[in-house]
C-alpha cells in the first residue's frame, strides 16, 4: 500500500480539486483529508459519515476562584500571559503547559483534558474516507493530522487497499510536518506565480528535510509560461520529478460549485486530458500498476 500526500506550500493552488479528480480515477483507494484546519475535500466528495469520534488532546488550565488567593505566582510563571488580572484564564492564550497547575501553592488550578475537535470515518462514491474537524482557534492540529493518517492507514491495511490519497494542509509548519512524515511521496501542486515559486522552494525543502520523495505539478501553467519554465528549471536542478502540468480552466471552479470533480462535470478538455496524464505519471512513479488503479 502506498500513501501519496498532495501539498502546495502556498494555499489556493488547486490541490484539493486535483486530488478529487485523482480519486475519481483510482480504485482500491482510501481518502484522507489532513487539512484539518480548513478542510474542503468533503465539499466535493460528499462523505456519508459512518463513525464519529471526538478528539481530545492536551489540557487547559482553569482557576477555581474559591481556592485562589490571588498570590500572583501563576501570573509570574505563565509564559503566555494567559492569566487575566481577575485570575481567570484566557483559554485562547493558554498553551496547556500546566506550569500554573503544577506550581500553584493552593492547588487552585484545575487542568482538564481539552476536547479540540472531531474525526470521522465515512463513505464516499470513490471509496472510504477519514477526515476531521479541528475546533476553531484550537491547537494540536499536528496531532489530529497524525491521527487521521493513522486511521486511514489502518483502513487501508484492513481493507486490502492499494493507495491512500491524502490532502495536505498549506504552509510548512506543524500540520504539514505531521502530514508528510513517512509518506511514500508528496505531489507538490504549485502555480506559475512569483509567490508560487517562492513557496514551492520552501515546501520542497521541507520534503527533502524529512526525506520524502517529491513530484511537482504546475497548475494553470499557461497563466505565465515564463514562470512555468522557471519552476521546471528549478525542479530539474533540484532532482524533483516533473509529473505534468495542468492548464488554466474555469471548469475547475464550475465543477466545484456543483460539488463535482472536473471529470464528473462531463466533457473532455485540455485540462481533463492533462489531469489524466498527470495521474498516470504519478501512478507510475508510485509503482502502482496503471490498469488496476488508473483507468
Amino acid at each position: 500500500m502506498k500513501e501519496l500526500v498532495v501539498i502546495s506550500g502556498k494555499g489556493g493552488t488547486g490541490k484539493t480539486s486535483l486530488l478529487a479528480a485523482f480519486a475519481s480515477m483510482a480504485s482500491r483507494m482510501a481518502l484522507c483529508d489532513a487539512d484539518v484546519d480548513a478542510a474542503d475535500l468533503h465539499l466535493i466528495v460528499a462523505p456519508a459519515v459512518r463513525e464519529r469520534h471526538s478528539f481530545t488532546s492536551g489540557h487547559r488550565a482553569v482557576i477555581d476562584p474559591d481556592r485562589c488567593t490571588a498570590c500572583g505566582i501563576c501570573v509570574e510563571l505563565c509564559q503566555w500571559r494567559a492569566i487575566r488580572a481577575d485570575f481567570t484564564i484566557d483559554p485562547i492564550a493558554c498553551e496547556g503547559c500546566g506550569v500554573c497547575h503544577y506550581l500553584c501553592p493552593e492547588g487552585a488550578v484545575d487542568f482538564p483534558e481539552n476536547r479540540c475537535g472531531e474525526w470521522y470515518l465515512s463513505d464516499t462514491r470513490f471509496g472510504p474516507m477519514v477526515h476531521a474537524r479541528l475546533g476553531i482557534a484550537e491547537e494540536n492540529s499536528g496531532k489530529l493530522v497524525s491521527l487521521v493518517r493513522r486511521e486511514a492507514r489502518h483502513l487501508g491495511e484492513t481493507g486490502g487497499l492499494e493507495l491512500i490519497l491524502t490532502d495536505g494542509p498549506p504552509g510548512i509548519g506543524c500540520p504539514v510536518i505531521a502530514a508528510i512524515g513517512g509518506a511514500d511521496a508528496v505531489l507538490i501542486v504549485t502555480e506559475p506565480t512569483l509567490s508560487g515559486i517562492h513557496d514551492l522552494q520552501r515546501v520542497a525543502g521541507l520534503a527533502d528535510h524529512f526525506k520524502v520523495p517529491a513530484m511537482i505539478s504546475v497548475n494553470k501553467h499557461d497563466l505565465n509560461p515564463e514562470m512555468t519554465t522557471r519552476i521546471e528549471t528549478y525542479a530539474e536542478t533540484s532532482g524533483l520529478v516533473l509529473a505534468g502540468n495542468v492548464p488554466f480552466d474555469p471548469q475547475f471552479t464550475k465543477a466545484m460549485v456543483q460539488g463535482m470533480t472536473i471529470f464528473e462535470q462531463g466533457g473532455s478538455s485540455p485540462a481533463t486530458e492533462a489531469v489524466r496524464e498527470l495521474w498516470q505519471r504519478v501512478c507510475a512513479k508510485l509503482g502502482l500498476t496503471a490498469p488496476s488503479v488508473c483507468e
Binding site: 484546519d37 480548513a38 474542503d40 465539499l43 492564550a93 491547537e139 498549506p170 466545484m256
Partner: peptide, 30 residues
C-alpha cells in the same frame, strides 16, 4: 491561512479583521 494557532497569533488584539474570500464553496466554507 487557516483557523488555528498561527492565524490566532496574527489576529489577536487587532482592531479589525479584513477577510478576503472567493465566491466558491471552498471560499465560503473556510
Amino acid at each position: 491561512p487557516g483557523t488555528s494557532c498561527p492565524v490566532i497569533a496574527a489576529m489577536k488584539d487587532t482592531d479589525v479583521v479584513l477577510l478576503v474570500t472567493e465566491p466558491t464553496p471552498f471560499g465560503l466554507h473556510d
